[in-house]
């Protein structure tokens, strides 16, 4: 049964009417028109839909709306609220760290969660943090470089 749930997304409060077990991904994309989190598998296996809930990366395709109630959700759109790119986004441009780019927003969100808790992660730590994110174009090395670059930039 459809119920009204209030969620906080990128600092704003939204009330949405949907079944409570609806995956958060569809609420973000279809109700809030935030298309940056992407559908990749619907099974929590690929990370294309990664967003932050209370600062932790979750796969929003596999995360029910009801579990997001009362929590702070951050999506890629929340990284550059005033149009100024987040250092991670700028670093991905500087390193040209995308090919098709479909996986990239999820990876940036996973990287943000990492950098929020580890200011200068090692290569191994970054790779581990991206365990849940798949890239099919083979852009891995550029993505790793971009995350190192962003970490350095943020530490400045």
């Amino acid at each position: 049964m459809s119920v009204t749930t209030t969620i906080q997304v990128n600092g704003k409060s939204h009330s949405v009417a949907a079944e409570p077990d609806t995956p958060l991904l569809y609420i973000l994309r279809n109700d809030l028109k935030l298309k940056g989190a992407r559908f990749g598998c619907g099974l929590g296996q690929c990370g294309a839909c990664t967003v932050l809930v209370d600062g932790k990366p979750v796969q929003s395709c596999d995360f029910p709306l009801s579990a997001a109630a009362g929590k702070a959700v951050t999506t890629i759109e929340g990284l550059a609220p005033d149009g100024k790119l987040h250092p991670l986004q700028q670093a991905f441009i500087d390193e040209q760290a995308a090919q098709c780019g479909y996986c990239v927003t999820g990876i940036i969100m996973a990287a943000k969660a990492l950098l929020d808790t580890h200011s200068r992660p090692s290569d191994a730590e970054i790779r581990t943090a991206l365990k849940g994110n798949l890239c099919r174009c083979g852009t891995h090395q550029r993505i790793l470089r971009a995350i190192h670059r962003a970490a350095k930039e943020i530490a400045k």
Binding site: R29, N30, K33, L34, K35, G36, A37, R38, F39, T75, I76, E77, A80, L85, Q89, F92, I93, Q96, A97, A98, G101, Y102, V104, T105, I108
Partner: peptide, 21 residues
């Protein structure tokens, strides 16, 4: 030349057919 499509791809802009609404 920097790829012209990458800024939109890192920003989460609705550029894929998947995002058409």
């Amino acid at each position: 030349a920097p790829r012209r499509d990458i800024p939109a791809k890192v920003s989460g802009a609705p550029i894929y057919v998947h995002d058409l609404d």
